[in-house]
Amino acid sequence: MNVLVISEHNNNEIKDSTMHAIAAACELGDSVDLLVAGFNCSVAATNGAKIEGIAKVLLADSEPYENQLAENIAPLIQQIATKYSHILMAATTTGKNIIPRAAALADAQPISDVISIVNKDTFKRPIYAGNVIATIQSHDKIKFMTVRATAFESVLQESSSAAIEVIEESFDSVKSEFIKNDMAPSERPELTSARVIISGGRGMLNEQNFKLLENLADKFGGAVGASRAAVDSGFAPNDMQVGQTGKIVAPDLYIAIGISGAIQHLAGMKESKIIVAINKDPEAPIFKAADYGLVADLFDVIPELDEKLIV
């Protein structure tokens, strides 16, 4: 089995989510190759070649790949797909944008959000917002998949070095033009890789109160998350949203503060190792998902936690 992983990178480092996708690929195949497509990204290829389990890096360094637009990357994947049994990408917004497009070009039915590999053609994935888990078998010759980073351990950077093969061919759809990225600046770890997440809900009441969570998160060296209700109420930006329609997270410690625990939210965080719920409503559904529940007014709890917490 030859498996191809499509990497995400910032031209230098391979992103953490890709490291988890490589771990999933290693479960599937004897030989795992890594595609590094971008512009001026040879450093990323060199770093990719050092990753545990990688047999070969394919480097496609060309201007149309600069922003990883699906319109340009998908035909590149299609071109090299026939050498592989499986083509994987992490289930990030980039992965979800690219993999279905590449699969359609190869006349294959992709499999989204894989959380477990049963065997080479059978996989588990959540459906209905994670309320049930489907075990499905693919009959396609080439299996295109996105995998949930939180469901697989990460691979390591090694000192060894895989071969780098350059792909000269370049695809440019010209119908799609990149204008800009507006990325929220944050000194905190990314939600999807943070060890601790402090999340706030509608109970935080306003944007100013929501900032109280930042102090707490910094004490843990953690990230700040939000429920959809908090985002919709304007307390927190969109990219902080944890849930089925936001980010799927699985930190060691998830502290939900003033979050009622809608199914939508639980679907995004219930794989966390330890869940703490703090809410003044003892009937809030979040307590059913929590390992430790504290029924209390969050405006009393936050300062007390802040004061007593020595990490």
Partner: peptide, 14 residues
């Protein structure tokens, strides 16, 4: 304007 991990991306499509 697209909602992507970490923020927003803007594209112009024909």
């Amino acid at each position: 304007t697209r909602e992507v991990d970490g923020g927003f991306q803007t594209l112009r499509l024909t």
